[in-house]
Amino acid sequence: MANEREPDIGQMWRQQPQERQTMALEQIRAKATAFDAKVKRWYLVGGSLVAVLLAKNAWEVWIDTDVLERAGDALIFLALLFVIVRFRRYARAEAEPATLGLTSCFEHYRSRLMRQRDLSRDSWKWVLLFVPGFGVNVIGGVMEIRTPSQIAALIAFGVATFAGVLWMNARTARQLEREIDALESQ
């Protein structure tokens, strides 16, 4: 292989000026600790937010007198629980730094693409979960004080937003699918 090589290019590459940046072990440990702390903080903030939402919906199920609103809150509560389970599974699938050496670049890149594709492709499931709860809630809340045309406009707006989100995610999923195909055809 050395004979086939254009020798100056390899030399030029390897002899280019460099900063020679080094990291002391203490610095690496500090970085790793800071990274872990950041991840924990992120989970804590996310978990707290979801806990507050769960508590709010549970409370509303308890105190609401309107049957429709009560049913809507209960459905949102269940949807939140389901999202927590799905999110935990998704977060666990993230490759840990310790395992990066076990996976070839091809496998690692493909798994990242597939993960993002699946997330985009399945996003409708995440959004759809909340539709019944919000739908029932909105209908229960506005039915008495809005005209039928206003209710229809509200529903149309909700459906259009939902469809827009779905379209964008489906487009992203298709792009990722093409990238995966190109990768696998190598």
């Binding site: 490759a95 730094p97 990066l100 050496g101 076990l102 996976t103 070839s104 670049c105 690692h108 890149y109 990242r112």
Partner: peptide
């Protein structure tokens, strides 16, 4: 191992 970790980290 080293190159895999480095490239996979960079790609991520």
């Amino acid at each position: 191992w080293v190159y895999r970790v480095a490239h996979n980290t960079a790609i991520s």
